[in-house]
């Protein structure tokens, strides 16, 4: 890429400074998001404050159903994070070790779900997990079950759907971290007599931890905001915070809905703020949705 002879660092720095595109180019987007995104969210938070007495917020905090739903949501997000890590890591490792053509195929499989929306993927699981669905049909055909098992509208279905949707967000950063490992480190460990298991444990796993951390953060944060998947696949007991908020909106309890939404926002930002000390969020998102 370099067209000229390498420049001395000092001189290069001077050129960079002069070549800079002006910072004000960021202003239109800042203003746009300020008006159509930040101001609306601020209005929602003001609604949660009530008439200055924070009555909706206190009502929300004291509501026992809401307490259960918030805790349940955290539990679902935690299980999804753990499950995507355990399920996703082997595929990421396989792709990182495989020859290029095979790695491309594996990554294509990871990216394939992005070709369809969360709505369509949830619909696919409705079809697969239903009473007359493919999974029941296959299990019955193999003689493993006598009568169809109820899977749709259960917590199990919510987990299957959410894990399916969140897996790529876990796999891609782990894959990127694994690809960044210098193979000579593995070679050195092997030359010194380390077994495959101890190379994995003492070299590859520790060096891939930044990818694991990035993936875990993204999966956890996105999971606590889920709405469509639990609404379509879960039963009445699998309510997540977003569904609770939508339910209050349906009852025109805008103040209470705003208070719950404020709680969800604070929770999200808190997790991101704590985690961003360890993880580069922009990198974790990797330019993909």
């Amino acid at each position: 890429m370099s067209l000229a002879e390498p420049l001395a660092p000092a001189r290069l720095g001077a050129l960079r400074a002069r070549a800079a595109t002006p910072a004000w180019l960021a202003l239109p987007l800042i203003a746009f998001l300020g008006v159509f995104y930040l101001a609306p969210v601020a209005m929602m938070l003001a609604r949660a404050a009530g008439e200055g007495d924070w009555a909706p917020l206190f009502a929300a905090i004291e509501n026992q159903v809401a307490q259960r739903v918030f805790l349940g949501t955290l539990e679902i997000a935690f299980v999804c994070t753990l499950a995507t890590l355990v399920i996703g890591y082997p595929l990421a490792l396989f792709a990182a070790l495989a020859p290029p053509w095979l790695a491309r195929l594996a990554i294509a499989a990871v990216l394939a779900p992005f070709w369809s929306s969360i709505l369509i993927r949830s619909y696919a699981w409705m079809v697969l997990l239903g009473r007359e669905g493919l999974v029941n049909g296959a299990l019955g055909g193999l003689g493993l079950i006598e009568a169809p098992i109820r899977m749709l509208n259960t917590t199990f279905a919510v987990y299957v759907g959410m894990i399916h949707i969140m897996l790529p967000f876990m796999i891609l950063p782990i894959y990127a971290a694994l690809k960044g490992i210098d193979g000579r480190l593995v070679q050195a460990a092997e030359n010194l007599g380390a077994s495959t298991a101890s190379v994995l444990r003492h070299v590859i796993l520790p060096l891939s931890l930044p990818g694991v951390a990035a993936g875990a953060l993204v999966v956890f944060v996105l999971s606590i905001g889920f709405y469509v998947t639990p609404a379509l696949l879960g039963g009445p007991r699998d309510m997540m915070v977003s569904m609770l908020i939508a339910q209050e909106v349906d009852l025109y309890n805008w103040d209470l809905a705003s208070a719950y939404a404020g709680g969800l926002l604070v929770l999200t930002l808190l997790i991101v703020a704590v985690a961003s000390r360890f993880v580069d969020l922009g990198k974790a998102m990797g330019g993909r949705k």
């Binding site: 998001l33 609306p40 926002l265």
Partner: peptide, 18 residues
């Protein structure tokens, strides 16, 4: 961080505000 935040803020929060 502000400009990237729409990636992580749950859609339902934005919905009510909007």
């Amino acid at each position: 961080a502000f400009l990237l935040s729409p990636l992580v803020v749950p859609a339902i929060i934005v919905s009510i505000g909007v």
